[in-house]
């Protein structure tokens, strides 16, 4: 697990991008996905097929934050789900460190997600009956990490995201910004290679959103981060922005 601090001076995203190697942590190659088709484990149940992605290809290099923008229904979330291994595209490949997720079984994809991918949801999706610390330690339970180590790791992560005094609070006792920080800490608990964030500031006010973005920027120093958002401020922290429209890559800048 990396020991880097999630706090630190914030440099220009473009400058950092120039300084890093461009090793692709995630590579999407010709990804097409149709909901309602036979591909993928999770189908809508609707007999009609809806094409969510059409021949989408791009890389997310290690140490780089890649933003995904586009109107609602453009396929941003589908891309995130494919990268997170929650969805198997109808065709094309999604490689995580040169491992094609589509070639893996469900259980193998789950294992990859557990060890290599952290997910941050717009609505946090913390378990309401667990404390902040237990939520952060959740992925470590399945990894078989001993209880004392789980607690220590979760406490350290909560301290790093500025919630050292909130470890025993339930999600319902935290503000929106605090909940998202807990969610980010949870995504970092297994020290993943890739962070996938879906509208991470969508439920937050501007000031709180800025704090969360700063946190994401910090955690993205040694990882590949893929962020989907409508929000310009969020996309500004990205080193690269991929624009989707009707399931196609419309622009990369």
């Amino acid at each position: 697990m990396s020991n880097q601090s999630v706090h630190g001076s914030r440099s220009s995203a473009r400058d950092r991008a120039d300084e890093r190697e461009s090793t692709a942590a995630v590579r999407l190659e010709g990804v097409t996905h149709e909901y309602g088709s036979t591909g993928g484990r999770f189908r809508s149940g609707d007999e009609r097929t809806v094409t969510a992605l059409r021949d989408v290809s791009f890389d997310v290099p290690e140490g780089m934050i890649v933003g995904l923008e586009g109107p609602s229904g453009s396929g941003k979330s589908t891309v995130l789900h494919a990268v997170a291994g929650l969805l198997v595209p109808t065709s094309g490949s999604v490689e995580l460190r040169e491992t094609d997720l589509a070639a893996l079984s469900d259980s193998e994809r789950t294992r990859v997600r557990r060890h290599h991918i952290g997910i941050v949801f717009q609505r946090f999706h913390l378990l309401p009956s667990l404390s902040a610390r237990a939520n952060v330690a959740l992925p470590l339970v399945q990894s078989g990490v001993p209880r004392a180590d789980r607690r220590a790791r979760a406490t350290a992560l909560l301290e790093e995201v500025g919630l050292g005094d909130r470890t025993t609070h339930l999600p319902g006792e935290l503000s929106g910004g605090e909940r998202q920080r807990v969610a980010i800490a949870r995504a970092l608990s297994t020290d993943p290679d890739v962070i996938v964030a879906d509208e991470p500031t969508g439920e937050l006010d501007t000031a709180t959103g800025a704090d969360v973005l700063e946190l994401l920027t910090d955690v993205g120093r040694d990882r590949a981060v893929l962020v989907a958002s409508h929000d310009e401020a969020t996309l500004e922290v990205a080193d690269r922005v991929v624009t989707l429209c009707d399931g196609r890559v419309d622009d990369v800048r």
Binding site: T110, R113, I119, F121, H125, L127, L138, Q142
Partner: peptide, 10 residues
């Protein structure tokens, strides 16, 4: 669903 997303198998 959250358990699945954080890596709990079925």
């Amino acid at each position: 669903a959250v358990l699945e997303s954080v890596g709990f198998p079925t």
